[in-house]
Simulated scan of single mutants.
Amino acid sequence: MSAEQRAQRKCTSCGINIAGLSAASFDCPECGHQLHRCERCRKQSNLYECPDCGFTGP
């Protein structure tokens, strides 16, 4: 992943810019869109919504 791609990652749950190793990146279970979650939202199990298909998850 390039530095530019890392700089553009935003948490799908809260919208903050993601930096660091504790963030998670994964594909949406419904459509495969790349999603990112920050450490805080992962720990708190905050809901996320895929911007492409509307799938929501914990």
Rank of each mutant, 00 (worst) to 15 (best):
R40S: 01
L47R: 15
P29I: 01
E39C: 06
S45Y: 01
Y48F: 14
N17W: 04
R37E: 03
G15C: 10
E49F: 00
C53W: 14
S13N: 13
L35A: 09
G54R: 14
M1N: 10
R6M: 02
H33K: 13
R9F: 04
A3V: 02
S45G: 07
R37H: 00
C38A: 02
C41P: 06
D52G: 04
C38R: 03
A24L: 08
H33S: 09
S22F: 09
I16D: 11
E4G: 07
P29K: 12
S13A: 15
Q34V: 09
K10E: 08
G57S: 06
A23N: 09
H33E: 15
F26D: 08
S22G: 10
Q44F: 02
A3P: 07
S2M: 00
R9P: 06
S13G: 11
A23R: 12
A7E: 14
S45A: 10
P58H: 07
G32C: 08
F26P: 13
I16K: 15
F26W: 15
C41F: 01
C38N: 04
F55C: 01
C11E: 09
R42G: 05
C38S: 06
R37Q: 07
A19D: 07
C41G: 05
A3C: 00
Q44E: 14
S2A: 01
A7R: 14
C50Q: 12
K10N: 11
E39R: 12
S45Q: 15
T56D: 06
P58Q: 05
Q5I: 08
S2G: 11
N17F: 04
G32H: 03
L35T: 09
S22E: 10
D52K: 14
C14W: 05
G32Q: 05
A7Q: 13
C53Q: 13
A23K: 12
E30T: 07
F55Q: 09
E30Q: 12
T56L: 02
E39I: 00
A23L: 00
N46R: 06
S45I: 00
S22L: 06
P51F: 08
A3E: 13
G20V: 00
R42W: 01
C50R: 09
K43C: 00
N46P: 00
I16E: 15
C50L: 11
S13H: 08
P58K: 08
C41R: 01
K43A: 04
F55K: 12
L35M: 15
N17G: 03
L47Q: 15
P51Q: 09
R9E: 14
R40D: 01
I16C: 14
R9G: 03
H33F: 13
G57L: 02
F55D: 03
E4W: 06
S13E: 05
Y48V: 04
T56N: 09
H33Q: 14
P58I: 00
R6V: 00
A3W: 07
T12Q: 15
G57T: 05
Q5F: 11
S25A: 05
G54Y: 13
